[in-house]
């Protein structure tokens, strides 16, 4: 079993499950509502017969009562395809050990993949930095989880972050509506990022942005004289962080607020994942929230 699959995380995620909140287009019968209507077990509505409709679907009982030709419609349930987009840019290298952003993202992606496959839905994986680095087509077979884990384990931080091109690619390549999980630190141009997310949403995908940040990047608890070298470039900055902290926190808060507002505006799920926080807890809270939103 891969190290990326941690029992406590998987147990909690599996218990909650990943339900599609909107209509998804699957290839087989599953737990999730399909946009297609037809014969199934769950009646949805009557509609006026129009020429061309199969006369087998005419509700004769209704004709007997109203002398109108009506057709019965049933809701189709199908499975969904989740697309895991994992940021493997250089900025994801920040953090040590379990708090390393990339490692955290990998863990998160693996956990999601396992949970989704376990509920017989399909999951695909794409890793990217400034370009698409690796790709694993969607599958709902259980061994596929291992393939996903292997891919994740092989993933190495590469170049600068560029999310928007990847999102454009997704919208072009994936025609069936599914769920897109974007796991990234989002150190990219905010407008471009939000624009890309909007495009994905426009194609009918449910989008969930799992924003992975290290606590240093959020709370900025650094001290002393520090030479900040850019993980995604050759430049550096000399600073005394304690003098900058309020200004930095203000900038971060402003950025997060804008990102949150942008996601809300596009009906994109935004989840801030702090790497110092237990993954099982963080993921669990998110899945609970999804369930609550579905019930509403």
């Amino acid at each position: 079993m891969s190290e990326l699959l941690q029992p406590d995380v998987l147990a909690r995620a599996e218990a909650l499950g990943v339900k599609a909140r909107q209509l998804v287009e699957g290839l087989r019968v599953g737990d999730h509502k399909s946009p297609f209507r037809g014969f199934s077990v769950e009646f949805v509505q009557h509609r006026e017969y129009v020429p061309g409709d199969d006369i087998r679907h005419i509700d004769w009982k209704s004709y007997g009562r109203s002398e109108r030709y009506t057709v019965k419609q049933y809701e189709q349930e199908t499975n969904f395809t989740a697309h895991l987009l994992v940021d493997t840019s250089n900025s994801m290298r920040y953090g040590d050990g379990a708090e390393n952003k990339l490692e955290y993202a990998k863990l998160l992606a693996a956990s999601l993949a396992f949970t989704i496959v376990r509920q017989r839905d399909s999951v695909g994986l794409r890793t990217f930095d400034s370009d698409l680095r690796d790709e694993l087509p969607p599958s709902s077979a259980l061994p596929h989880v291992n393939a996903v884990c292997r891919k994740l384990e092989e993933a190495q931080a590469g170049q600068k972050t560029a999310i928007a091109p990847l999102l454009e690619r997704i919208t072009d390549q994936v025609s069936r509506r599914g769920i897109v999980f974007l796991i990234s630190d989002c150190f990219d141009d905010l407008d471009t990022l939000l624009n890309g997310l909007r495009q994905v949403r426009f194609r009918g995908h449910e989008v969930c942005l799992l924003h992975v940040l290290h606590r240093d990047e959020i709370d900025f608890p650094l001290d002393g004289n520090i030479r900040f070298t850019n993980l995604e470039g050759a430049d550096h900055l000399l600073a005394r962080p304690h003098l900058l902290r309020p200004a930095y926190l203000k900038v971060v808060k402003q950025y997060l607020d804008e990102l949150q507002r942008g996601c809300d505006g596009s009906r994109v799920d935004y989840v801030l994942m702090r790497t110092d926080r237990n993954l099982a807890q963080g993921l669990g809270e998110y899945l609970v929230r999804r369930l609550q939103q579905m019930r509403k």
Binding site: H214, E217, N225, F228, N230, L231, G233, A239, V252
Partner: peptide, 12 residues
Amino acid sequence: YRPLPWAAMDFL
């Protein structure tokens, strides 16, 4: 200055 590889350079 203590060197520190840093990701959030724009914020800084």
